[in-house]
């Protein structure tokens, strides 16, 4: 039932990290990205479910005060190896806006088929307050050149020592960024549900892995499919080449004797 209690630990850190984010005009990073090793790259790449669960925890603590995962249904968290009861409990901690039977705007507890909601009341207020609505993060790891490396480098790329115009921050990946540094100065008390105390880099790695999962939840399935399909295709390629040679030998033998169809036909 670890996940049912996750949200209660939502600390002041989340409030501190609330703020604006900006959509870059291009998907390209401003500088070279520091390349990372991920479990999910490579032909047999897979997700580490424990890392994804930690990433979800970081997302809840540091990201969701501003961002949403509008394409990620709670039910799909079963891909993180979370039990159905735990997912239901987690979903019910979120408030989903709806119009009740009296026709009034109201909220109800989330259910399996809801997605991670947007915490800010409405996009117009977000734009009025921050100048830009913080983007939905569901597909973000697919939407930038460099993918997971981009997300990780951005998350660890803050340098508060740099001078910036009002309301903007310095980041190695996006030189002028409206998203404030999500990391509070003191994280010594922060710990994962299993009791470990992750470094800033570890949190960034875990939440990046989680965001890569939200963007590409069926990656493992695709990799396994790829192995089977490519092996099948290679077998068919070899077999059809042999068959072609067999047929070619027959056709050429026949050609010597009687020739092919009449070209004048």
């Amino acid at each position: 039932m670890r996940f049912g209690t996750l949200l209660k630990t939502l600390s002041t850190a989340a409030v501190l990290s609330a703020g604006a984010a900006a959509t870059p005009a291009t998907a390209e990073p401003a500088g070279p990205l520091e390349s990372q090793t991920w479990s999910f790259t490579g032909p047999l790449g897979y997700y580490d479910e424990m890392q994804l669960q930690h990433g979800l925890y970081v997302y809840q603590t540091r990201c969701q005060a501003c961002h949403s995962l509008g394409l990620v249904r709670f039910a799909s968290l079963s891909g993180l190896d979370v039990s159905e009861e735990a997912i239901k409990a987690l979903a019910s901690t979120y408030e989903i806006p709806y119009i009740n039977d009296d026709g009034d705007r109201d909220t109800r507890p989330g259910v399996m088929n809801d997605s991670f909601p947007w915490a800010l009341d409405n996009p117009k207020r977000a734009i009025a307050t921050y100048g830009k609505a913080p983007p939905d993060l569901s597909t973000m790891a697919r939407a930038r050149i460099g993918g997971a490396d981009y997300v990780y480098n951005l998350l660890v790329g803050y340098d508060d020592a740099h001078e910036q115009p009002e309301g903007a921050y310095y980041n190695k990946v996006m030189k002028v960024i409206k998203m404030p540094n999500p990391w509070p100065a003191d994280m010594s008390d922060f710990e994962y549900p299993n009791g470990t105390r992750p470094s800033l880099e570890q949190q960034a790695r875990d939440v990046t892995a989680f965001l890569n999962w939200t963007a590409d939840p069926y990656l493992e399935e695709r990799h396994q499919w790829g192995i089977i399909v490519v092996l099948y295709m290679l077998a068919l390629t070899v077999l059809s080449f042999l068959a072609y040679r067999v047929v070619a030998a027959k056709v050429h033998a026949k050609l010597e004797v009687e020739g092919g169809p009449d070209p004048e036909h």
Partner: peptide, 13 residues
């Protein structure tokens, strides 16, 4: 006719 083949089976395979 020495120059030709039919599409099947040579080119099918």
């Amino acid at each position: 006719k020495k120059d030709t083949v039919s599409f099947h089976p040579y080119y099918t395979f």
